[in-house]
Amino acid sequence: MPLAFPFPAIVGQDEMKLALLIAAVDQSVGGVLVFGDRGTGKSTAVRALASLLPKMRVAAGCQYNCDPDVLAAICADCVQRDSKGEVKARQVPVPVVDLPLGATEDRVVGALDLERALSEGVKSFEPGLLARAHRGFLYIDEVNLLEDHLVDLLLDVAASGENVVEREGLSVTHPARFVLVGSGNPEEGELRPQLLDRFGLSVEVTTPDDLKTRIEVVRRRDAFERDPEAFHAAWKRREGQLRRKIVAARKRLAETALPDSALERAAELCILLGTDGLRGELTLTRAARALAALEGDESVGDPHLLRVAPLALRHRLRRDPLDEAGSSVRVERAIAELFGP
């Protein structure tokens, strides 16, 4: 795997970086969708995330990345080994799994292990990408071009947190909880509403339009391409700082208070915007809490809600396909109305 562009070295695109950091702190916010212009560093940011994230503990030898400390989420394999006291913990990088376009269903959900079936005549299950992504990130570039049958499948798994495989006489269920990260260009097509709803946060990225930023982007990218190692070394410290910040925020998350006033605010905002369902409020408060934890604040307040509201709500509004102003503007208007200038 070639070196990825360091996360802190990405110029601008603060909203996108914020959304990814929030998802890194609290995986339960439920995915990040990045939509925007070509060449704005969408995939660069996601790939950079892989090397930024702190390592995680897994049960050694488990093909589903089970957490050795949480017995509830453990797979059948691990339960068996656990009863014999054989589960050993191991530090591994958080998986950021690419779901390439053109992937076939059997590789995504997992299927009969061809090799063993052919050579040994044994029916065994070979886990797919969903298993690999468990407790990590599943990244789909050009998510709006993903074939429909794969979308259906993802929807199902993302909703239940479990991957149920019933095929070729195999019957396997394994945990598959991951942060879905999708990116795409809106001009290539719309996203199905059901899939859109699965993403907790949505980000709109645009090309920076001031010259200074643009020059800085080109300068850093050029420096990175000329000598990736040196560029990495130069940013190592900043990356380390950010990593420690994520670790600290994760620890703080449980203690970060979510006062009733904040819940009320969130509910008011959602009612004003007329978002469907409760997912909007849930995501909004969760993301606000993750942000508060990230910034080292003790409880969630208006400033946190304000910053994450566009991310958490803009894709949940009843969409008027012809409303040119776009959802971001509507969220901003509602915020201004509710929180005052």
Partner: peptide, 22 residues
């Protein structure tokens, strides 16, 4: 469009990530 997306993904990554047919 889907072919182009596959091609550009490979151009970007510099490698073919194959997840097909087991």
């Amino acid at each position: 469009a889907s072919m182009v997306a596959r091609l550009t993904a490979v151009m970007e990554a510099g490698e073919v990530v194959l997840q097909r047919d087991g």
